[in-house]
Design a binder for these strands. Structure first.
Lengths: 145, 145
DNA sequence: AAAATAAAATACATTTTTATCTTTTATTAG
DNA sequence: CTAATAAAAGATAAAAATGTATTTTATTTT
């Protein structure tokens, strides 16, 4: 469903959120150790997200990734689109170039429902909520060891 | 969502179904022209499906792909799994190795619903039904020109 | 039996995704 | 100001997905 890049990105950002109280900044190495993701690859993803203003970052000692005020109301959808684009949400399930209610592929209507359900989920969930689930121990970002 | 291979495969098989009355056999070239898919690539997919007994084929003059009795009750799910495997239906949305109700990722429950909705759709639809939609003109397998 | 046909198998090429390593730039601590 | 730190940027590589071309095999028609 989501690309690997997107999976790592979501996990990383939720982790940053869950730790980003009182101006706390997190290094890529720490993030990746915690979420069990490849370091350099995840770094690239986070850099791209910083360029798109989904997360913030600073260089140098005590630098790292963090969340600031402007990013408080970001939904999971914004993050997914920033990494994977929106093809998941507006293309035809069978890859037809033109597929619509008036010229539907054989699964158009049912697939549309699924897709919209997914979009609804991603648009509803804020990163704050997801981070809270992790902070409170109700959810995790890594496999138990 | 589905791979390109799976999109082409679904379209090809539905088309074979829709044309496979009275022992009619279809060549790869004809199929690909109709569904607007790359010929050699789609041929490989169909060959793999033939090995897995999702469709039938014979070589030689008047040969081609067709559906026989044993394949009458195949659901869309069988086809998708034959091409893309089942990772879409049993993996974690965020890629965690272990993710379950007792050790959930932050979107476990909601994502599960989406995934199960998709699985339900694919398990409900038979290829016969989908082909019928195409035969009757209610749905198409290619963009209108 | 020979020729023609079409899938099957094999080989090869390109593009995209995933992943790693190195160099550069910005920032801070001493 | 200098050294240390950490992200940013760039280069490279491996793997997977996608796509194309060629050779082989099975089948049928003549």
């Amino acid at each position: 469903m989501f690309s690997k890049a997107c999976e790592y990105g979501i996990r990383a950002v939720i982790y940053i959120w869950s730790q980003s109280k009182e101006g706390n900044k997190l290094g890529v190495k720490d993030i990746c150790k915690e979420i069990d993701a490849p370091e350099y690859f995840t770094a690239k993803i986070l850099q791209a997200l910083a360029r798109q203003n989904i997360v913030s970052s600073t260089k140098g000692p005590n630098g790292g990734f963090y969340i600031d005020k402007e990013q408080e109301n970001i939904h999971l959808m914004d993050l997914v689109v920033a990494i994977d684009g929106d093809k998941l949400f507006n293309g035809c399930g069978l890859g037809l170039k033109q597929c619509s209610a008036t010229n539907p592929c054989p699964i158009h209507h049912e697939y549309k429902e699924i897709r919209e359900g997914l979009a609804r989920l991603l648009k509803t969930k804020t990163l704050r909520e997801l981070a809270e689930e992790v902070s409170s121990g109700k959810a995790t970002l890594h496999s138990v060891i």
